[in-house]
Design a protein around this nucleic acid. Sequence first.
DNA 1: GCCCTGACCGCCA
DNA 2: ATGGCGGCCAGGG
Length: 127
Amino acid sequence: MARAKRNLRELWQPLAKRRPTPAAENPALEAIWHVIAMIPRGRVCSYGEVARAAGLPGHARQSAYALRVAPKELHLPWHRVLGAGGRIVFAAGSASFREQARRLRSEGVRVVNGRVPRETLLQLEQL
DNA sequence: GCCCTGACCGCCA
DNA sequence: ATGGCGGCCAGGG
């Protein structure tokens, strides 16, 4: 995992430099990305949990923001991040909604009406 | 600083 | 289960 962390940073830093964009020096975003990068296949986590694990309790929306601005080069498993209780937050039927459901199912996660079973929800501990 | 906008959350009718 | 609503917090104009 120390390895995963380093790899992510190696990908991001060069991008941050040549990026005029928003938070090219935002430790909070990096922290969130790291957490997301560690969610194992077949498991999911809520925005709130991700924020908490990143040391930012109460900043669920920041997780959403972090995901939205994440460079695709980081290849984060964005589909493994769901709303509280394990529900897909995108509008039902939207392209994003279908794509997320598709990706989740492709790794064996059951998705019914935009929800995943409790067992797939990952309770986080330390990182 | 003020106001609006979210890939949010939890309570409550 | 379900929609509504207020609370939250960072970004952007």
